[in-house]
Simulated assay, not measured.
Amino acid sequence: MLDVPRERVRYLAGLLSAQRRMLGTRRRTRALTCNYQALMILIWFRKAEDTALLGAGFGISRATAYRYITEGITVLAAQRPDLHDALKRAATDGWAFVIIDGRLFDSDRSSETTTSVNGKTIDAWYSGKHRDFGANIQAVMLTDDLPIWAADAMPGHLHDLTCARELCVTAALNWAAAELDLPALADAGYEGAGHGIKTPTRQPADGKSLAITNRTVNRLLRGLRWQGERGFAILTGRWKTLRHTTISPRRIGDVVAAALHLTHFEYRYLAATR
């Protein structure tokens, strides 16, 4: 039994069918129909089943199972909205602010290396903060916990602010604050992100206590920001394959975007556009 509504299977099957028509795939040349392929993909997302065993259960080879799952990830990730469009919709829907946050999505160790700011050779996908290998994913959430947009994967050794800047997330949030009157709340790691991105005031380096005004603002920001930071928990709680992936870390962004689209369908967040 798979605890996924039948309508979601039909929806994904429709996307896969459109993809096959676009590629010019002839009828009855695939090992699985669109419905069975959609079901297999959803099982992989929902239960994180071993791909070889999953393929055997559907009567296909391991290589074919990998190819079908990759195709499903690509089709779903292609539905990811543009960040500016997502922010416009949030403003139109009447939200007073959004939350920007980053998370390290765990993956197998990668042999890719890079040079640190100190000139040392380090593992590109290793996060010293989390002491684990993975990809840094930036996401924008509403205050009801729902993520509305997720970025491409960035190497785990990078800080949240660096990733957000390189992906132009901070620029889009600065624009939203100025043009849409939609500020963003963030943790202290985004300090200096620019106009409209509100971060808490750090403790003074000399050990002195923060002014009462700053402590009040920090408490207010924490009380508002936590509601949106649960957005990552919604994704990893519902789609178990996000808890640990064995694919290339650079593909994690597409997997998260695919899971995000499935979540939007589940929460009927696509109703206004589909």
Results as ranks from 00 to 15, higher is better:
P147Q: 12
I73K: 08
P155Q: 00
A151G: 14
I252G: 03
L104G: 04
V169T: 07
H244I: 02
I234V: 11
A56G: 12
V217T: 02
V9G: 00
E112A: 05
A233W: 09
L15A: 04
N118K: 15
L76E: 04
P204T: 06
Y36K: 15
E49C: 03
L270N: 08
A151T: 11
T246R: 14
L2T: 07
G189P: 08
D85W: 04
N136I: 12
F97K: 10
R28G: 06
T199M: 05
G14A: 11
C34K: 01
G207D: 04
E112D: 06
A48I: 05
Y66W: 14
D145C: 15
Q227D: 07
A52F: 02
V140Q: 09
G119R: 07
Y126N: 01
I197V: 13
G72R: 00
A205Y: 09
G237P: 05
G134E: 07
I197P: 04
C168A: 08
Y267C: 02
W95Q: 02
S110F: 10
A86W: 06
T263K: 02
G128S: 09
A48L: 04
T162H: 10
I197Y: 12
E112R: 13
V217K: 08
E191F: 07
T162W: 02
Q138V: 05
H84P: 09
G192V: 08
A124R: 15
G128Y: 06
E71R: 14
L54T: 12
E266F: 05
Y126Q: 07
L242M: 11
I212W: 12
D254N: 13
T64M: 11
D108W: 14
C34F: 05
L220N: 10
V140M: 07
L221W: 06
K120W: 08
A188Q: 12
D123E: 06
S17I: 03
I137S: 05
V256W: 03
W226N: 03
E112G: 02
